[in-house]
Computed example of a mutant assay.
Amino acid sequence: MYRIEEPFYFYLLAIIPAIIVIFLLVFWWKKRAQKKFANADLLKKLAPNSSTFKSVVKLVFLLLGITFLVISLTNPKMGTKLQTLKREGVDVVFALDVSKSMLAEDIAPNRLEKAKQIISRTIDQLGSDRVGIIIYAGNAYPLLPITTDHAAANMFLQNASPDMVSSQGTAINEALELAKTYYNNDEQTNRFLIMISDGEDHQEETKEVAQTIANEGVKIYTVGVGTENGGPIPMRLNGSMIGYKKDSKGETVITKRNAAVLEGIAEVANGSYIDGNSTNTPVKFMADVIANAEKNEFETTQFSDYKDQFQWFLAIGLFFLIIDIFLFEKKTKWLRKVDLFGEEKSNK
């Protein structure tokens, strides 16, 4: 398994398109200047060994060299062996509502982004606890299985969106049922399910399903995002705002937070309901609850003994740059016979 120690340096790759643009501009300028200086036949006689192909090849080697040098700066590391560790913690599963109503902007930046902030910051407060993520709208799907890799959890979380779920709605019951499959440690006595939603479009018998899970030892905490006054659901096309969602009568749909549903779920499942419009409130609350919970020991396997691999990328990058330095733009004898760009035909 690989690990990138300094991913910030990937931003340096932005110079590659800049170099390509400069190359094209200089190439265009040269061609234009040459046409003003002499016609094609005369240019052929004055510079018979001029080669566009070799100029492009030199550019490719230069760009490859820069790319590998940038990768070497990020210092890739590779785990050389698997190690089994013993840890103590609890199991925490997040169920994130990604229905269209979560795009409402009655809280900044919108309900879904606020929910992601809460989950991400809660994960950052955890120690060696295991986490899992479920997303749901009209259906529920596993986004990330239970794991101790908190970095992976945050990475998968950022990709969660309504587009990942095929049908719309709020399948709370299905999300609750799916959560039951996440707790694969029979010896774990503390299991937490944190549901973050606006509570809208809830299903019947939600409390009964929550009660069943609670009887299996899972404590459910619900976090409500959105306001009681609500807000419209923005519609976007290719990232651009095109209006708001309307009903069959052409009226703008106003989505409101339904805290009563979330409160009812938490009440029957030995948990609590927390207002999520302020990020710090649920994060601090859940961090305190989990910190004070009894921890169980479990085993986890992970890669260890990560070793630096930058030297390989550095060597390859220098190799391409050296080739670029010693590669001339003039045609070689064998290249004169290879007319890849139709240079010979264009000059006849």
Rank of each mutant, 00 (worst) to 15 (best):
L262A: 06
T255I: 06
S166M: 08
L143T: 09
F328A: 11
V218K: 04
K54S: 04
T281E: 15
A14F: 13
Y221I: 00
I172M: 09
K331V: 08
I123M: 08
L318M: 13
E88D: 14
F37S: 13
M78V: 15
I119D: 01
V92M: 05
P48K: 09
S167R: 10
A115T: 05
G138I: 14
S197H: 00
L314T: 08
H202P: 06
K245T: 13
W28C: 06
L46N: 10
N296E: 15
F320H: 07
E187K: 11
A14I: 13
A152K: 09
E297D: 14
R191D: 03
N280Q: 14
E216Y: 07
Q158K: 15
G243M: 09
T74E: 08
K54W: 11
V218M: 05
Y141D: 13
K330D: 14
V225Y: 04
K284I: 05
V131W: 00
F156A: 13
T170Y: 00
K219N: 01
V268L: 00
Y183H: 02
V165A: 02
Y306L: 02
V289A: 03
V225R: 01
N229P: 07
L178T: 11
E297Q: 15
H202D: 12
D97L: 02
F68H: 03
G276M: 03
G79L: 04
F285N: 12
A269C: 00
